[in-house]
Structure formats: C-alpha cells, structure tokens
Design a protein around this nucleic acid. Structure first.
Lengths: 198, 198, 198, 198
DNA sequence: GATGAATGAGCTTTCATTCAT
DNA sequence: AATGAATGAAAGCTCATTCAT
C-alpha cells in the first residue's frame, strides 16, 4: 500500500505546510488543512510529526539549512566581499521569487511567533546554519580588510533586515519594480554601509 | 461606577492590548485576557471596540501616528540629513527601550498577520502617517543633495528593515550590548548607504 | 423634561416593538434595538416594561383587543352570517395590508414561541377578547340557523387557520394576486364549509 | 468506538433536533442540548452538520419529503377527491399524534423563523416535495370535475391553514376532544369548501 | 424619569490531538 | 502505516438586565 516512501511523505508534508503557513499564518492553518492538501488523513499526519509546533520548528531548520548551504557556496568562491554581497542579495531575491514560501515563512512565521518557537529554538538554535555562514562571510571580509570591523550583529541586522524589509514591501505590492531590479542598488547600499572606512 | 471617563477606559484598553499582543501574539491573546488586565468585564470591552481585529487595527493607527509625529519633529529641525538619520535612529531605539510594545507590535503583529489587517489596512492605509514622514525626510535629503537619489522604497527598506532587524535581535537577546550603544555605528551605516555618491 | 406623557411613550414602545418583533423575530430583536428605534435609552425602557417577555405578552393583549373590537363591531350589525364572514375576512385582510405587523406578530411570534408566552398566557388568557367575539359570531349564526352546529374549535380552526395561512403565503410572496382579491372566494369557501347543511 | 454507522448517527441527530426544536424553539435549543440528548460531544456534532441553521434546513427538507411521500401515496389511489381529502386529513392527524414533532417543527419553527430559513429556503425550495403533491391532488380533482376550479393557493391556504390551526389548538390543549375525532367533520368542511359548485 | 456603562452567563463554533479499527 | 470519528477545552461575541449618576 505504501507506494511512496516514508521520507517522501514527510517531505510532502513539509512542502505543503510551508506554503500554507506562509500564506495563511500559523494559527489560521489547521492540521486538517495540511493533511487535505496532500491527501493524507489527519491521524496519519501524527505518524510523521508529533505536533503542530514541532512541525513548525522543523520547517525553520529546513529553511535555515537551505539558506546556509547557498551562502556557504558563495563563501567558498574566490571573489571579493563586494561581489559576495551581490551574490547573496541575488540568491536571496531569487529564492523570494521562486520559492517565496521559504522567505515568507522566515519573516512572518518564525520571526513573529515567539510563543511557538520559544521552547526548542532558543537563541539561534534553529537558524544556526544560516547565521553561521553569514558570520563566516563577515569575518572573512574583515580579515581580508574589505569590510569595516564592527559588531557582527549590527552588520547582520543591516543585511538581513534590509533584505527582509524589501521582501515585505514586495509582498505588500508596494514596490514599483520587480525585486530583481533592486539587486544592484541594494548591493551597493549594503556594501557602502559595510565596507572598510577610508 | 463610571469613575473613569470613557476616553480613559478606551486608552487603558489600547495600552493593555498593545502590551499583551506584542508579548504573546495576536491569537494567543484573548479578549478575556485584555479585559482582565484592566479589570473590565468581557462584555464591556465590546462597548469600546466592535471586535478583536478592529482593536488590532486601531492599534496600528495609534502607533503609526505616534511614530509619524516623532519623525515630523525631527524633519522640522534645521539640521543635516546625516544628523536627522542619527536622531531618527536614536528616537526609534529610545522607543524600543521605553515602550517596547510599540515597536514589537509593529514588527510582530502588524507585519506578520496579513489576515487580520487585510481588510481595512490595504496598502499603507494604516501606516501612512509614519511612511509619509519617512518620505519627506528622504525627499528633502535628496533635494538638498545630501542623499543619493534612489528608489524611495529601497531606502525605506534599508532604514526600517535595519532598525527592525536590530530590535528583533535585541528582543531575542542576541545583542551583546544595549541597543543605544549601536546608535552611532548604525547611523553611520545607514548614512553611508544613503548618502550622495561621489 | 418629560415633554411626552408616559402613556404616549409606552405606546411608542409598543408600536416599535410590534414592528421589530414581527419583522425580525423575538430573539433577533434586542431591547437596544427597540430603544434605539424610538430614541429612548435602554435603561429607561425598563421603567415602562419589566422585561422583554412581559412586553411581548402585552403586545398579544393589545392585538387581541384590537381584533376583538373590530369583530364585535361586525357582530353587532344586523346582517346575515354569510355577510359577517365576508366582513371579517375583509377586515382581517385590510389589517394585514395596513398594519401587517399586527397579524404577523400573532402568527409568527405569539403562536410560535410557547416558551415566551407559556407563563402568563395559559390557554387563551391573552387572546380571549378576540376568541370570545369569534365565539359570539359562531353561536349566533348557529342559533339563527345559518351555520351548521359543530364543535366551535373546528369552525374556529378553519376560519383562523385559513386566514392565517393566506397571510403567510402572501408574506412569502407566493400569492399571484393581492390579498384583497381573494376576499370573495375565501369568504365563499368559509361559508360553504360552515353553513347549515341541507 | 464507531459502533454505529455514520448514517445512523446523522439520523439520531435529526431525530433529537426535531424533538428539541419543536418543543423548545430554535433559539432556546442549543447545540449542547442536542449533542447531550444523543450522547455525542459538541465538537462531533459539527462533523455531521456544518452549523445550527444548516441542520434546521435539513430538517424541513426531511419533513417535506416525508409528508410529500404520504400524500403521493394517497394521490395514486383510485378514489374520489372527497375520499382523498379524508385520507390526507387522517394521515396528517395521525402524524400529529404519532410524531408530533414533525408537524410542530413545520408550524412553529419553519414557518416562523424567516431569518433562519431565508438563505437556502427561498420561496418553496425547502418544501417543494410536499407542496407539489398538494398541487397534484388539487389539479386532478379539478380536472375530474370534483373540485371547484379556483386559485391553487387559496385552496392550499384553506387546507393547510385549517389543519395547522387544528394542530395548534390541540397543542394548546384547547380542543375538548382528540384530534382524530375531528377527522370527519373537518374533512367535510374542507370538501364543502372546495367541491365543485352546483 | 432618564442615561448608558457595566455585568456575566451563555451561545455557536473551532481544532489539536487521540484511538479504535 | 493509515483512517477519520470523537473529544473537550476554549475562543469571540451577544444581550437582558442593573444601577450609579
């Protein structure tokens, strides 16, 4: 009867949940909603995830790993910090376009529902893959004397706050242009803010 | 029994709701929670606000107006854009310290619960006081040739995304220092990103 | 301050309540609805009626008396039972046209909400004025040998059930013609049913 | 735990609701009341019916179909209109005796709570099975030259208004005799009213 | 008489989770 | 693994009625 492997079923839950949570919000989305979307029974859902909020937490991990890997790939390139900034922005906007649920989940679900992620995602537990790579990017830039040596979190807040803010504005249809078209100017703004001071 | 004027009662609801919503989230906070916090009966709450979500909408308006006024006061000063940036950052962090529920409500409730604010807060309807003042700040900086002439939303996304990101990090206790201590470096970063290019 | 006599105020409550109850139903209509309709405060309403259901009971009395008087006037005429039937039908339909709330209240509120009228309107207590006149009409017709001598309630059920049914159908917009246009045929049907058998 | 089939559970809700609604009225009867009566949890009720008013609408349909079938059986007999009238009256009173909730629901709930049945039961949508059979009865009587050719609704109003009126009076304990004992005299009255005029 | 803020019980409905099958 | 009926606590909201002014 099990035509589809358990792993595939799990992934389909993750994918459906990601879309529903990011579109409707955590509380509006119900387990029956998720189950129905992939043609699974409610009861069976609980064979894959122990609870709604444990699913939500796995989702953050999943996204953080995915983003982390992409940034890692950029970090490993032999290019300048300025170019890396451009590539990170580009990658981020590409994801916001192709898999908007990933970014939206991060911004609207993870960042805004402390009560859900509180236990189990303390500090940066659930987003460390991603944050670690950003740290590496920054530290290397500083040691190569391309970036201004400042508090990491200030740089991080600028970078991610800026990108998140733009995706928000885009999601609200407040941007006159496509996200991509901002890639260059935003990369410049970030680089200007972070580059080593003369 | 009406020792307290109706207006005062309304304000106490606003104040209590702001705190509860920003601390616990919109869905976790119940009307009984709010009512109890100010010693009011549940039924009586509905003499002041027609529904939970209409209260939520009033709250955004309230915050937007408050922030808008503060920025307006800065806009009206006869100082450079660089100094204005500093003052806005300072004001924002001061509010994040003294009335954290204001900023948190904005970031965690308003920005993340589309389904609640959808009807009635289309586009920027509910935050126009605030956005308008940011627009004025930016346009004046450009016309005084102090700021680089770019898409407003890109500049806005940088500014507010950055500040929002920092408050998030602070709220998550991920910042090693107090928010204030970042005021200078963040102002510099923002100014470097926005200033007219040579 | 009391420009309007207490009696007039009472009557205006009765009139407003009659319309609202018959249009919206007893449970849908709230005391604030009634008070607002006549520009009276909720609290003051309770200076005129002790409760919602005591108001409802007074309304039946009011209608029963009104209908009773009209039938009495017909009973006192020196005309045949056949003619009286015609006049009663005519009067009833005229009231259904001019003051539909009277008939509708009777049919939809009084007859259908036992739980409201149970205590205080046992048996025919609240509609005796009206029923008594119908009894007089019937008894006189029988003693004049114009009507068939049968159980009063069977005759009464026919008469009032028929008329009520027609007003219902009219209210539901199921009648192809105006109510009046049925006056003759209905009177005939009733007379044929009640007349003395040859 | 599902000893009983889903269909049977649904029927038990229908049966319980019919009794409670007709006895206590639509608004007084609560979902907890209904659920408790059949030993079902409140939440589970909503697995069977989407809302209180959709249940109420199904009930009308159910009764209309039931009555419709009974009249159809009579219509199909090869007997005179006079005899059909007798059988319809007899069937109606039998139902009023054996399953009073059916007739009472019709009279007290369906006919009197427009706000509940408004959407979904426009015109005769919810009672067409029943009304259609009455129409057939009447049309056939006219074409066999046994009944007077008049507006259907006038005849319908007489027939159903009369029977409804009698059941009302019976329900109010105002009838000195049992309902059955009126069968003959009422059938005669109806026949006299409807028969072809000489 | 008049006001309307205040009360609080009670209603309909939802939903994460369980468990017998 | 899979099903989906069942549970029950809890939410948002309403409204008859009261009572201090």
């Amino acid at each position: 009867m099990a035509r589809i492997s358990k792993e595939k079923r799990r992934e389909s839950i993750i994918s459906a949940a990601l879309k529903l949570f990011s579109k409707q919000g955590y509380y509006i989305t119900t387990i029956p909603d998720i189950a129905e979307k992939i043609g699974m029974s409610v009861g069976n859902f609980y064979n894959y995830f122990t609870s709604k909020d444990s699913l939500a937490k796995e989702l953050v991990l999943y996204i953080s790993n995915d983003l982390g890997k992409s940034i890692q790939a950029i970090n490993e390139k032999d290019i300048s910090s300025e170019e890396k900034i451009f590539e990170i922005v580009q990658m981020y906007f590409e994801m916001a376009n192709k898999r908007p649920e990933m970014i939206e989940y991060f911004l609207r679900i993870y960042l805004s529902n402390r009560e859900v992620f509180g236990a189990g995602c303390e500090g940066m537990t659930c987003v460390s893959s991603f944050v670690t790579e950003m740290m590496i990017f920054f530290d290397e830039g500083v040691s190569k004397n391309e970036l201004h040596n400042q508090d990491f979190f200030s740089a991080f807040g600028l970078f991610m706050g800026y990108l998140g803010g733009m995706v928000f504005l885009f999601g609200e249809k407040m941007l006159p242009e496509s996200l991509d078209s901002y890639t260059i100017s935003i990369s410049e703004n970030i680089y200007n803010a972070l580059k080593v001071r003369s």
